[in-house]
Amino acid sequence: MKALLEARGIKVHFPTPGGSLRRSNAVVRAVDGVDLEVRRGEVIALVGESGSGKTTLARVLLRLLEPTAGRVLFQGQDLATLGRRELRRQRRHFQMIFQDPLASLNPRHRIGRILAEPLRVHRLAQGGEVADRVAKLLAMVELPANAAGRLPHQFSGGQRQRIGIARALATQPKLVIADEPVSALDVSVRGQILNLLTTLRLELGLAILFIGHDLALIERIAGRVAVMYLGRVVEIGDRASLFAHPAHPYTAALLSAVPIPDPRQQRPQIPLLGEPGNAAAPPPGCPFHPRCPIARARCQQDPPPLEAHEPRQPSHRVACHFPGEVELDALTR
C-alpha cells in the first residue's frame, strides 16, 4: 500500500545558543536522519524520552519547521516544492492535536468561532453552512450543541481536548498528529478521549501519528510503534511484535521501566547507565552505547543501520548490532 506520508533522511540541526563573544558552530542534532512512513488509516506511535526529537520530527512532518536535510512526501508530493498558496491548500489534509488544550485554544474566542476558523481559512463552508458544520463537529466529539456559545475556560480538561479534536477534524484531514494528547488528563478521562479518537479514526479513515510516552496506553491504541533515541529511530515494528519481542536494548529498558499497577507483579528494571544522552554532542557509533548494558567495542565505532533482524518479521526493524540480547538476558537472570 502506498504511504500517505513519507519522510526520508530527515535531519534537523539547531545552532546552539552562544554569546556573541563565544561564536560556536556547534549544533544540536534534534533529528538526525529519520526515515518514517505513515500509511493510510493507521495509528503509528512515536515514543522516546524527552529530548529524543519526537516533537521536532512531528513539526517537520507538518511542515511547521524546515528540515536541515531530507524530504517529506505527502501523497507522493514533496511539500518543499509547493508554493505558499499550494502548501496552504494541502495543509487541510494534515492537522495537529496538542497536549494542553487550554494553551492551544484562544481564551477569548467562543468555541463556535474556534471551530469555524479552519472552515473559513480553507473555504470549506460559507454563510449559514458554517454554523451547521460546527454543530456537526460538536456532535461528533459528543459535546452539547450549546457549547458553541461558551468560552474555553468553561470546560473541563477532557471537554477541552474534545474541542481540540473537533478543530483538528474540521478540515476533514487524512492525517492527524496528536502530540501527547492525553498526558494532561486524569486517568478516568484519558480512556474517554482515546476511545473517541479510535472511533473517529475508524469512521473517517484517518491516519494518526500518536506521540506519547505511556507505553501501556500505546500498546492499546497503536498498530505500529517507532522508538526514538537521540534524534534517530532505533526500533520500529508492529505493536504485537515490538511489545512481545523488543529487539533494541533501549526499547527493552523503556518497557521494563513502565510501572505495573499491581504489587504482585513487580519485576526488576533493566538498568540504563549514566544520564540521558545529549543531542548537542551525540556519541560516535551507536548513539545509545554509553547507556547500553550490553555495549561492546563495535558499538562505539559502527553506527548500526535500522534493519530487519528476524526474517519472519521483515517490518520489525532495529538499529542494534546485538538485537534481542537484553530481553533474553533479563529473563534468564
Binding site: L217, I221, A240, S241, A244, L255
Partner: peptide, 17 residues
C-alpha cells in the same frame, strides 16, 4: 492500562479502554 505482552502475530484491532 496495564502493559501486557500481546501474543506475537496478533493483529487484532486494539480493544477500547
Amino acid at each position: 492500562p496495564k502493559l501486557h505482552n500481546s501474543p506475537p502475530g496478533s493483529d487484532l484491532a486494539p480493544e477500547p479502554l
